[in-house]
Design a protein around this nucleic acid. Sequence first.
DNA 1: CTCCGGAACTAGAACGTTCTAGAGTCTCCG
DNA 2: CGGAGACTCTAGAACGTTCTAGTTCCGGAG
Lengths: 343, 343
Amino acid sequence: MQSAERRTTLADVAAEAGVSVALVSIVMRGAPGAGAATRERVLEVARRLGYQPDSRARLLRSGRSRLLGVVFDVRHPFHHDLLTGLYDAAGKAGYQLTLSAVTPLRGERTAVGDLLQDRCEALVLFGGQLRASELASIAARLPVVAMMRAARRRDVDVVHNDDALGSHQAVDHLVGLGHRRIAHVDGGEWHGSAERRAGYQEAMRRHGLAEHIRVVSGGAGEEDGARAAERLLGDPPTAVTVFNDLSATGLLDVLRRNGLGVPGDISVVGYDDTGLSRLAHIDLTTIGQDIDTMAAGAIERAVARIEGTPAGPREMVVPPRLVVRGTTGAPRPAAGARPPRQR
Amino acid sequence: MQSAERRTTLADVAAEAGVSVALVSIVMRGAPGAGAATRERVLEVARRLGYQPDSRARLLRSGRSRLLGVVFDVRHPFHHDLLTGLYDAAGKAGYQLTLSAVTPLRGERTAVGDLLQDRCEALVLFGGQLRASELASIAARLPVVAMMRAARRRDVDVVHNDDALGSHQAVDHLVGLGHRRIAHVDGGEWHGSAERRAGYQEAMRRHGLAEHIRVVSGGAGEEDGARAAERLLGDPPTAVTVFNDLSATGLLDVLRRNGLGVPGDISVVGYDDTGLSRLAHIDLTTIGQDIDTMAAGAIERAVARIEGTPAGPREMVVPPRLVVRGTTGAPRPAAGARPPRQR
DNA sequence: CTCCGGAACTAGAACGTTCTAGAGTCTCCG
DNA sequence: CGGAGACTCTAGAACGTTCTAGTTCCGGAG
């Protein structure tokens, strides 16, 4: 019976190699204090017995766990991209990551609870709906870094994309192409939505286009974009900035179905640079969040808190970048006065 | 300094409540052997001191960890859907999940290594490139369940979708609509590809359509589908079954760009029922894998191995189901003799 | 009144590591 | 020749739990 036989421990290796447990520990950690010959022999025995260190015992003894807990949502594609960056950054800083997923049946509280029991030294939370008071009570126990969350709090670090700047980049790009009548489809209740909307409005004003400001309510889903498109069809602008790529995809679909050419009749800019926007037949101009910088920033902050170095301001705002693809172009020459095509 | 103060332990609670450590342990676990009044008092103290059990110490002492390790690939959307199902199934069986991700910079070996150190009692591997010998040496140490892997081995359990049956369903559906000239775009080296191709061929033969069998080489990416579409354009069939949804999307795009109506001129069936296939403007008929059943099966097998119950055959094959959407329909009346439209 | 059984509680070992303190042994130098 | 270092190695205590084997106390049966 496989599971019945005890796994090999330091003591087993020590007995077999004829040395003390402590020495085997030294050798296994690669710590100084063992002769070359013995080191060799111990390693050989360990390999032969298939010794695997027990991280539980190791961490129990040496107070530190060098473990960072990450709470992510299984449903959110963007979270997965971010995970990649985090693993990389954590590795470089000498920390391990332990993941806890939020699923439709497994709430954020459960996910956080598991990580607390695992004795993580800090928590990185992606998005999430936790109330400020809950966040505070967790932060009282260990350092917390919240990503993609507007929370401007004194007790947690916050790392997020500069949503307003992203909207500026989108509007600047469109204005540069000659557009003036630019609408915005917003994201409703989602985090970042308010900032992206405000950024759009501010950029429009900065370009002297205040009179053309037009915000259509939307959301994060494909169908939200589709609904918004239907509302725009009555009097289509020459360009639209959309809350995110998925919504933009729904919008694109409805526009094209109704005979509007993209980018001929109308230009569209999404947000997030997801895999979706890269698909050949979508080929969406979009705003990409700088995943690597955000990941590195989050880890850096978490580690700084753990190690007690005060680390400057609690908020880190990372500039996004414009990714130009096929859904944006110059407006029709006559554009700006009336809709380019009757519906 | 937050990280400097020791966290509260059983001993702290015991001292504060004026009882022994052992009794606090009993109370915290809800085990029998403590009076109602004391129980109440201990719980109160624990709450007040913010006591959190240390899972490391707990598991170290009590041999078992009740932990299942899962290795998944951050880049694979399907893996995320599967994770959701696994969390659910594991919870019901009284086990916790600990995740280890494969990323572009973090290989499968590293991911598995971390889990071994965490003293998981079994491993669930998604897909993966590990060689059979490596798999065997891991399986010698603890039970392993491989998902989405063709490996027909005696040392690991295998849970996967019935790829051949999925292809049958696709072909049956198309034949039922009246198609005869049905091609297949395969997945190259990817797991499942050979089975899906063979299933297609077998189904065609079963319907007496052996002469119409036509396999075009493809892959798992959008561009693979696009390339395959270009190769089909010279003499388009009336229907195509494609290795997966992403490839089908690329194929759809090229077909439409070249003036072929879908499903008017040509019907397309994908595989996996990913979010992509559900997008309104893709609306792809596809074969959906039964995620919940596969997840439940994997957990059930892992637990059975851990607990020593032999559990029957090592391989579990789960039937998929056809999801009819908008890319399939009856062929043009004249179809079957010559391409419905010149290119 | 004694004795028994059970409920409530406790002391101390164990889990597999790491860490501290110190014991040998060897080399080198005054 | 004596001793100071520098190595190599070891014994044993910790880490925070759970588990085993008690001990104490109390009520009720004999």
